[in-house]
Amino acid sequence: MDFCLNLWFFRAAFEGARFLLFGDPSIENRSLFGNQKMAHIISVHSFRGGTGKSNTSANLAALYAMDGLRVGVIDTDIQSPGIHVIFGLGEEDVAYSLNDYLWGRCTIEQTACDVSSVLQGASPGGAVYLIPSSVNAADIARVLHDGYDIDLLSDGFRDLIRALKLDILVIDTHPGLNEETLLSIAISNALLVVMRPDYQDYQGTGLTVEVARELDVPRMMILINKAPSTFDLEQIRRTVADTYNCPVAGAIPHSEEMMGLASHHIFAVRYANHPIVTELKQVAKALRS
């Protein structure tokens, strides 16, 4: 007991000195995989589609990379992939997709596409790698028909973090609560549940939060997205936090500018000083703290 206490004391002293000398030590996060890199895994999930989940994942990844971190974004929405569009990737740009890895055609690191160029040089030392799912109709049909080995996905996350020396892995999940979604949630350090202030989202969000609670996810937060401008955002935050007994990471109003980008660019890069980006930065910070 005493030994443990002493160890804790020395570790605290070391961290304090390191903070004074080198700045923010928050990069050092715990990982379920317990490897030397200790990457932070963040799952971005919503029970229903159309909540802005992929956009949020892409923006969070961009913000982390602009903060100098190495970020991986993995599109596990194999049945309806979409995040590659936000990063400007076409079908022809993808040599290997996540599907190829799951079918044993390649290693996970071979699927990673370096999309750091979308940050337009605003990422000193940072990088973004995207692991896209296949947009090929036959591949999607095969996944739907044959399924795949879920454990491979789990191994893939671990190998990816090691191979690319990632600080953060953002998992853009498939809506609903299927096996790969449950896996993503289970292995995450943080879960961001994205919901719209819409009756269609309330019940499913509640279920997702309870399931994540059962899986003992260390940090779980809700992001309220696409709130109509007539709503009082503070009131929405309070109501959602009270209803789901879960902290609200941010409340983002519906934005014409964001709609104007039509998921073709990363909002946080294009409108770096927009109030929505400020809110997203808070979300990013809250998920890592």
């Binding site: 309330y202 019940q203 009082d232 009131q235 959602v240 209803t243």
Partner: peptide, 12 residues
């Protein structure tokens, strides 16, 4: 302006 969230706890 006021958001009301209703959840069917039994179903949940």
């Amino acid at each position: 302006r006021t958001l009301r969230v209703r959840i069917d706890r039994k179903k949940q």
